[in-house]
Simulated assay, not measured.
Amino acid sequence: MELSGDDLAGVVDSFGALTRGELRDALAELAFKQGEDADSGTFEDLIDEAIDGYQLISLDTTESGRDPLLVVGPSAFPTRPEGTQDLRHILDIGEREIDRERAGEAAMERLREEAALAIEMGNTAEIERLIDVSYDIEAWAPVTLDEIRSHLDESR
């Protein structure tokens, strides 16, 4: 089953947020519904790619004793693969509300860390990508990234 980061974002969007394990289970269920045999572990690389591409953002929930939640990220254009509409009922997971401010802070912190690494490594392609992502994040959440973007811009 071929899925894009936007497809994964669409699955997550239908719930509001999912843990990594829940997303793996949802993707395995979609594969099953499409007549493909895939266990939930086969989707790790897809999930990692969606996170790397800012199509999914991970929110730390360890203080509440739960696994981190994945939410639709600022670079996503969520598309819902066929069969997604039944997943909430099949997996018995209710809709979750997302604190957009908290999600924005998580994306901003991640961008800050990745920007520092890209600048340190002199990776101009990554610097350019992160500048683009910074605009996506600002449009997506109530954060201001002028300072980070300025550091990235000066390092080009």
Rank of each mutant, 00 (worst) to 15 (best):
P81T: 00
D60R: 00
A107F: 13
T61P: 10
E44A: 06
I47M: 04
R149C: 05
I90L: 09
G83I: 08
R100T: 12
E126F: 12
E44T: 09
V143M: 04
S75K: 10
S150W: 10
R149I: 04
L27V: 07
E113W: 03
E101D: 06
G83F: 12
A107L: 14
R110Y: 11
G65R: 02
L130Q: 00
E101R: 01
D99W: 13
D67S: 14
S40G: 09
S40I: 04
E44P: 02
I47N: 04
E101Q: 04
A116P: 04
E95K: 06
F43A: 00
L145P: 10
R96W: 13
A26K: 05
G122N: 06
A125G: 01
E63G: 08
P68Y: 14
R66L: 14
D37H: 02
R80I: 07
E36S: 11
A116V: 11
F32V: 00
S150M: 09
E44D: 13
L87Y: 12
E114C: 00
D60L: 01
R112Q: 07
D92E: 12
I47C: 06
A141L: 10
A106E: 10
G53Y: 07
D132A: 04
E109V: 10
P81M: 01
D60M: 01
D39G: 02
A26V: 10
E101H: 05
D60E: 11
D132F: 13
G94E: 15
A106G: 11
I51D: 07
E113A: 00
T124V: 11
E101S: 07
E126P: 03
F32H: 02
I98A: 03
S134C: 07
L27F: 08
R88M: 13
S75W: 14
D132P: 04
I119K: 00
L70C: 11
A26F: 13
E101W: 11
A50L: 07
A103T: 06
V72R: 02
A125C: 00
E126I: 03
E44Q: 03
I148Y: 08
A28R: 02
E109G: 13
D25I: 03
T124Q: 05
E44W: 05
L69D: 15
P68G: 05
E109Y: 15
T42R: 09
R112H: 12
E97W: 12
A28E: 11
K33E: 15
P74H: 03
A38S: 12
A31N: 09
E128V: 02
A125W: 09
P68D: 12
R96Y: 15
Y135P: 03
P74K: 00
A118V: 06
V143I: 11
P68I: 04
L69S: 10
Y54N: 01
T61D: 15
P68H: 07
R112S: 09
I119E: 01
A141K: 05
H89G: 06
E114W: 07
T124D: 08
T42I: 09
V71R: 00
T42W: 08
